[in-house]
Nucleic acid binder design. Sequence first.
RNA 1: GACCCCUUCGUCUAGUGGCCUAGGACUCCAGGUUUUCAUCCUGGCAACACGGGUUCGAACCCCGUAGGGGUCGCCA
Length: 458
Amino acid sequence: MERETWQNHGAPSGTRHAGEWKMKVRTRFAPSPTGHVHIGNMRAAIYNWLFARHHGGEFLLRVEDTDRERSTPEAIRTLLEAMDWLGLGFDGEALYQSTRMEAHLAAAETLLEKGLAYKEDKGGTGQGECVVFRMPGKDVSFDDGIKGTLSKAAANMQDFVIVRSNGTPVFHLANVLDDIEQEVTHVIRGDDHVENTFRHIALYEALGAEVPKFAHLPMIVNAQGKPYSKRDGDAFVGDFREKGFLPEALFNYLALLGWSPGDDREVMAREELVEVFTLERCQSSPAQVDLRKLTWMNGEYMQKLPAVEFEAICFHALGKEGIDPEPEYAQRVFALVRDRVKTVADIAPMVGFFFSGDFSYDEKAVEKKLRKEGVRGILQQVKALFEALPAFDEADIDRTLHGFVEQAGLGFGAVMPPVRIAVSGQQSGPDLAPLLSVLGRRQVLERIDRTIGAYLQD
RNA sequence: GACCCCUUCGUCUAGUGGCCUAGGACUCCAGGUUUUCAUCCUGGCAACACGGGUUCGAACCCCGUAGGGGUCGCCA
């Protein structure tokens, strides 16, 4: 295990606290359920999870559902599903913040009694008095696990509301109190919370609680280098799932977005990530999502999938298209596209023609490769050769095609593409001979005929 | 505007004063895999934001400048 490099807030550097060595690391993910789980938040969850696992500690979930407007059961379900999908299991029971209101209010009462907070009618939107926390009037600084020492002068910090005039606790109070309740030792969250941290530290101290360690992750930005907005649309975990990304791949990619192991490893198993993950190796500048790299990484994971799992995914993908293929045939088809599929979403379009003659032709391919002089004759000759074949297996087809190319004095480029398009409508796909063999002679002949009829009549 | 923070190839990053004529990955380009597309392999293009210091020596330390971001709610 690595050396603990974090200092306790306010502790003289170099000292070791009694019992520190055996203090159990506890991190948490504390999202407010809004129905969409943003990848920025998900990455924070991943880092919390990784950090806890790395230290043999616990990873907790707290649902900050005090905003009754947005926190619907449906939204909570979406959140839980996203975590489950990514394999982010949490320890113990989830804590729902809405159940903690009494404790929050009681704490505010105590602060009031101690003179650490006061009541005030601030006017404006609210009606009546709210409870305001009194900042202690001293500079605050802390050692951020990622950003290093951060400090703020007393003059730049104002008192803030902890209980609304309608009697409900505000985020700062609830968040800090719940972290105390859950005995969170390390708060790893987004950059957008650094300003809050100064206030939170003051709250911890006023509450007489030990201040946890903080670490602030830089933001994730869109392809334009700007913060994600609703407009970008594609930054919710559910979107990535729909686009056909594997959870393990997304997990790996997100882990690498703002962190690196320090060597050249990139495709890393989860256990491997757990083993080497440290906050010290986190980047302190924003990271931009690159869908192409994610896609590449996803392809790596697709290829590593055990055959049965890959097949299950394929069956599922086809099922969603309303295709319920005969298993044995389907397995032979899937094997053909095994190492060319990058995402789950690639599957159905790539193999659809195997299961239905009612496929569409790629217009560009038709124009470029099919509607050309001599193609009709080539297809007819190839068809005749196929008809005459004793068996329609891969080796025979391959031999036939090669023989024909040679005998006709043509290039492969003049023969293979037209045949491929004739039977699949596409200009790319699995190797041609195995493709034809799996498709079967009857279909191949039929499709060649049909293609000639549709596109190559004089 | 105030306060905090950030700045290495297009992107993710390695790099903590000499090993850096800056390494890897994605993308892109070229060639190869007995001449289809893709995969795969090999090679290539491509960066220390700028200006000053400090030092024998700076991507690495200091100071400025520029650009970018976060926060400034009785939201979370």
